[in-house]
């Protein structure tokens, strides 16, 4: 990332006229491909078996909601955890630094599915052994699967994002920190006013990609009986003995989700002043 240029004003890209924007879509080969895609879509709708769809639609909606809530909560909690993980690796005392580096290495070096099963089966079996825990108010929650799914997804996001935050903290230009110190700011204020916001700013462009990756990790929670979108579709496949129809719908939904998320995140990114 180049240093910020404060001299050139920011010009928004001039909006192209509609015809110029449509031109790439109207090239002959693309029209043919679009026609083929439309024909395939029509064939899928008319030739395949879709009578189950109205019956399962409410459940699919519920599953979609579970997926989105898991995604949002684990991204927020994971990001909150990633900030200290990244900062400590750059500036923390040695034992904390080793701990954070070790955590990131272990989580990033092992499959998410293994972590999920370790936490769900391992912790679940461990908790069940203690009467104190079984008697506590937490037990009704700990007996369900979603807290373990949430915990695993959060830790995973924190580790990947923590690694990015380490780079972001280390990459803040020294001159900016020296300038802050030259103003007589105490160390904590330098961190709060300059280092921390600049590091978060530098890490933002990668956040969109990480969130899409996290979306693609969520269906794993179906293996520990959380009824997310993927679990609902698996249920449909078991009930109806259909192989392809539910799978195609699932792919279509995930395509829409990734697309919408990408557009929303790009719009949000555009609203953060970047100085270019």
């Amino acid at each position: 990332m180049p240093d910020i240029d404060i001299v050139t004003p920011i010009h928004p890209a001039p909006a192209l006229p509609l015809r110029a924007r449509l031109a790439p879509l109207l090239m002959p080969h693309r029209l043919v491909m679009a026609g083929l895609a439309l024909a395939a879509l029509l064939a899928i709708i008319t030739q395949m078996e879709w009578s189950w769809l109205p019956v399962y639609l409410p459940k699919i909606g519920d599953g979609l909601l579970v997926t989105l809530v898991l995604l949002a909560s684990s991204v927020i909690a994971g990001f909150a955890l990633a900030l200290p993980l990244g900062a400590v690796q750059v500036t923390g005392p040695a034992p904390l630094r080793w701990l954070a580096t070790g955590f990131c290495t272990v989580i990033r070096g092992t499959p998410l599915l293994l972590q999920l099963w370790l936490i769900y089966y391992g912790l679940g079996a461990l908790f069940a052994q203690f009467p104190e825990i079984r008697g506590s108010w937490l037990w009704p929650y700990l007996r369900q699967a979603w807290p373990y799914g949430f915990l695993t997804l959060t830790l995973s996001f924190a580790a990947y994002q923590g690694e990015i935050m380490r780079g972001a903290f280390a990459g803040v230009p020294r001159g900016e920190l020296e300038a802050a110190r030259a103003f007589g700011m105490p160390r904590l204020m330098v961190f709060r006013r300059v280092w921390f916001p600049r590091a978060v700013h530098r890490a933002l462009p990668t956040l969109a990609g990480e969130i899409i990756l996290q979306l693609k990790a969520t269906p794993l929670v179906a293996t520990i009986t959380v009824t997310d979108l993927y679990a609902v579709i698996t249920r449909v496949r078991q009930d109806t003995y259909l192989t392809y129809e539910p799978l195609l719908l699932l792919i279509a939904i995930y395509l829409c989700l990734s697309g919408t998320l990408t557009i929303v995140l790009r719009w949000l990114e555009g609203r953060v002043p970047s100085g270019h």
Binding site: M27, R30, L215, P219, I251, L255
Partner: peptide
């Protein structure tokens, strides 16, 4: 060519937008 380029584009888009687990099933 144009067609080949668009097909490759669709392939990478699909791979990057859909969860690996679902792709593997498919």
């Amino acid at each position: 060519g144009r067609v080949l380029r668009d097909i490759a584009e669709i392939y990478t888009l699909l791979i990057r937008a859909v969860p690996e687990l679902v792709l593997m099933l498919l």
